[in-house]
């Protein structure tokens, strides 16, 4: 038998935790080839890998629908909870109160959020729960074969020729009005922007609401649809290019003074928003609402970090929770003393 010198396989690339990107992958997707949701899963994997998040420190939560299946397709090493339709926010609230030290990723869809889940969605935004809430937004119900959802634009056409005659619910404006502290819109096809926003989201403390336009290749990618790849590419008004700079790293980006908006996030990292055509201040809620509505009136989508508030207290802070996760408290810290008991029984 001839001996061969084995070519040493190059050590796989690893992140700061020494983990290869493989450790961030999930099961094989069962969504349609070309579905925007798969691209979002890829970006989530990239963001967690690049940020060096320990997979076991993440909880994935979702509702019901095509979008809500996707947590099965990334980060298998994290606990996941595929709950009931439109009710993921409540499950996430309970889970995070139980263990506030976890990074929580919630994946929802436009039906799951803007119709059946509207009640829980709006209250989630009010509470400022430290959850990254992603809407994989395609304007249709996929699993039930293509009915309009409440984010479908007025005048948009189904494959069957049916025209939507109801106004769309804009989840970003709602989230801003209700007190969400990090609101962005992106497009599953814009790898760079989505990745930067996800990384910034991971560094933010409080509710992150990301509405990601994610075309449905099977039921809503045709001529006449306002959520098709072609339409979105054509009508995407990109506010700024976003660069995420991890905390502690020196910011050495060369830029013209006044051309970049620097947002410092909770963990000391920065997101640098490089201005394009419009002068935009993401800490101005009224300005955010104005541009969302102005672009929508023109049949366009504005994408980018629309609004951020890094000062507000999150739910766990308002509840004044102790540092130890409530789920880890033992009998000793939970039971009152016999002396107190005797007093109580008098």
């Amino acid at each position: 038998m001839a001996t061969t010198t084995a070519t040493p396989t190059p050590a796989p690339k690893v992140n700061r935790l020494g983990l290869p990107i493989l450790d961030y992958r999930g099961g094989k997707t069962t969504l349609c080839a070309g579905c925007g949701h798969n691209a979002i899963s890829e970006r989530i994997i990239d963001a967690l890998y690049e940020m060096g998040v320990q997979p076991e420190r993440v909880m994935k939560l979702s509702g019901i629908g095509c979008s809500s299946k996707s947590p099965a397709y990334f980060l298998s090493r994290a606990h996941s909870f595929n709950s009931v339709h439109g009710r993921m926010p409540s499950v996430a609230t309970g889970a995070l109160l139980g263990n506030k030290t976890m990074t929580a990723l919630g994946v929802s869809g436009d039906g799951d959020t803007a119709s059946i889940g509207m009640g829980q969605f709006v209250h989630l935004m009010r509470r400022n729960l430290p959850l990254i809430y992603i809407i994989e937004d395609n304007g249709v119900y996929g699993l039930t074969k293509g009915q309009f959802s409440a984010t479908a634009d007025i005048g948009s056409k189904l494959k069957t020729g049916v025209i939507n005659d109801l106004p769309a619910i804009d989840t970003c404006s709602l989230a801003i009005q209700l007190g969400a502290t990090f609101v962005g819109r992106s497009f599953s096809g814009d790898k760079k922007q989505l990745l930067a926003m996800l990384k910034a989201a991971l560094a933010h403390k409080g509710t992150v609401m990301l509405d990601v336009i994610s075309p449905c290749v099977t039921f809503n990618d045709h001529e006449g649809s306002t959520k098709s790849y072609a339409y979105v590419k054509e009508h995407d008004v990109v506010l700024h290019t976003a660069d995420y700079i991890a905390g502690g790293r020196e910011i050495v980006v060369d830029y013209e003074p006044g051309s970049v908006h620097d947002v410092e996030l909770d963990d000391g990292s920065h997101v640098l928003l490089r201005k394009l055509d419009v002068d935009y201040d993401p800490t101005d809620a009224l300005g955010a609402l104005r541009i969302i509505h102005e672009t929508a009136d023109r049949g366009e989508f504005v994408t980018g970090l629309l609004y951020v508030d890094t000062q507000d207290r999150d739910l766990c802070e308002r509840e004044r929770l102790i540092p130890t996760p409530l789920a880890h408290l033992d009998e000793e810290s939970l039971r009152i003393s016999r002396e107190d008991w005797e007093k109580l029984m008098q």
């Binding site: 909880m59 499950v91 109160l97 139980g98 829980q120 789920a327």
Partner: peptide, 13 residues
């Protein structure tokens, strides 16, 4: 929903 989420995370809810 909150009760079950908390129970899942290990808290008594």
């Amino acid at each position: 929903g909150m009760v079950l989420g908390a129970g899942w995370s290990g808290a008594r809810s």
